[in-house]
Computed example of a mutant assay.
Amino acid sequence: MSAGCGAAQGTRNRRGTAQAPTGLVLRLPPPTGPYRDRIGVTALYLVDRSRRDPWEAGIAVREVMVSVFYPARDVGGGHPVAPQMSRGAVEVFRAVDVAVHRLPRKGVDWGATRTHAHTGAPAEPVRRPVLLYTPGGGDARTLGTGTAEELASRGYVVVTVDHPGDAGEVEFPVPRAGRGPVRPTVFRGDPRARPWQFRTMIETRIADLRFVLDQLAALAAGRNPDAAGRAVPAGLGRALDLRRVGVFGHSAGGTAAAQAMDEDRRIRAAVNLEGFLDRPSDTPGREPDPYPVARHGVDRPLLLLGSERFPARRELERSWATLLAQGGGHIRRDRIDGGAHWVFNDYGALAPQLQGAGLMPAEARNALVGTVEPAVSVPQVRHLVHRFFARHLPVRDPGR
């Protein structure tokens, strides 16, 4: 079966007998690297007590949720395959993301999609490069699962980061004053149309990424950074080589990835998946202001990856032009022909399944991910991102 294809499947009850499907069960394309059959995953709840939440006045600290994907020592006994989304997140996804992206309101069992990673499996205690992923504005970390699993299958530790208040839906393991168990996005439209909101989003994401790196350093030093005190998989801290750190992000995440590398020397390479490199002005009619990374240029590797059918492609090119004018040999560019803006995350594989099942019209699928088939786009995105990091942050143990 080619990447991105899927079919409705039955779920199972507690006795293990098949149940009738409650809707189309979408499939994430499988990873292809040497660790594809033994990927582990765990969630960490991280709390930065030095910052207040920027989106909700009633939350006195900054909370961040991450998922860590990694090559596992073994995945047998007691380490079930993880769902793409938690139960609480699925309910908010149905209420928020479905409307935003013109997804079908009925006929899909959004909670039934499984990953290829095993919850809590012991990590192979080999030092590996660490890659952080920051999703698009209003998107949750779960939509970067496919690429995260592919990179983990090729020997990387991949940390996908949720930015609460910005992300579509984030479920927390513990209660806290000022929010419910699942926190929805505050966005009601394109943040670039609200300059203060866009600036806050990018600044917060950069601070979140730097905080996550601090917490990973604590984990590598043998401490448990999970603020709920939940156990960390065996060997995970010993799998982190924080001398080799990269970051990749989609849309607003691409903006944050590039600027975070500019601000934090711990980051050795970055991938910007169709993120603007300027911030809109508060003054109507005034040109957007380039971010420092665009004005100064880069002294470490940066990949700029765009799509052919992005409606804001002209504005994107203008925002990238300032950086490209700086010259130097650290920047690489590429493009997904036939792709649209969300071809870079899991929608690239999922939207065509919805169209194929008659649940999503062609125009909605094309607006989301373009006309390119997932059998082409999924391997292409994975290859371009992996090739870039393999060149600049190579895995010394390529798997067995």
Rank of each mutant, 00 (worst) to 15 (best):
residue 63 E to I: 03
residue 83 P to W: 06
residue 249 G to S: 01
residue 286 R to C: 06
residue 386 H to D: 11
residue 74 D to H: 13
residue 277 L to A: 09
residue 146 G to C: 11
residue 200 T to S: 13
residue 32 T to E: 04
residue 201 M to Q: 08
residue 350 L to H: 04
residue 124 E to K: 14
residue 74 D to C: 08
residue 3 A to Y: 09
residue 266 R to G: 03
residue 382 R to I: 04
residue 363 E to N: 10
residue 266 R to S: 02
residue 341 H to M: 06
residue 208 D to P: 09
residue 71 P to M: 05
residue 284 P to D: 07
residue 214 D to M: 07
residue 77 G to A: 12
residue 232 V to P: 01
residue 154 R to H: 13
residue 378 V to I: 12
residue 348 G to Y: 07
residue 270 A to F: 02
residue 18 A to S: 15
residue 114 R to W: 01
residue 226 D to W: 07
residue 138 G to V: 09
residue 166 D to H: 14
residue 259 Q to E: 15
residue 148 A to V: 04
residue 33 G to Y: 02
residue 221 A to G: 11
residue 260 A to N: 02
residue 72 A to G: 08
residue 31 P to W: 07
residue 372 V to N: 07
residue 61 V to I: 10
residue 38 R to T: 07
residue 128 R to I: 11
residue 171 E to Y: 05
residue 117 A to R: 04
residue 31 P to K: 07
residue 85 M to V: 01
residue 58 G to S: 14
residue 244 R to I: 00
residue 312 A to Q: 10
residue 136 G to D: 09
residue 80 P to A: 07
residue 223 R to T: 11
residue 115 T to D: 02
residue 93 F to K: 10
residue 276 F to Q: 12
residue 34 P to K: 11
residue 159 V to S: 07
residue 304 L to M: 09
residue 371 T to G: 14
residue 95 A to V: 13
residue 332 R to K: 15
residue 369 V to H: 04
residue 12 R to L: 13
residue 201 M to V: 02
residue 243 R to Y: 03
residue 33 G to V: 05
residue 31 P to L: 06
residue 113 T to F: 06
residue 336 I to D: 01
residue 161 V to D: 04
residue 356 G to A: 08
residue 270 A to L: 08
residue 51 R to D: 03
residue 400 R to G: 15
residue 92 V to I: 15
residue 196 W to V: 14
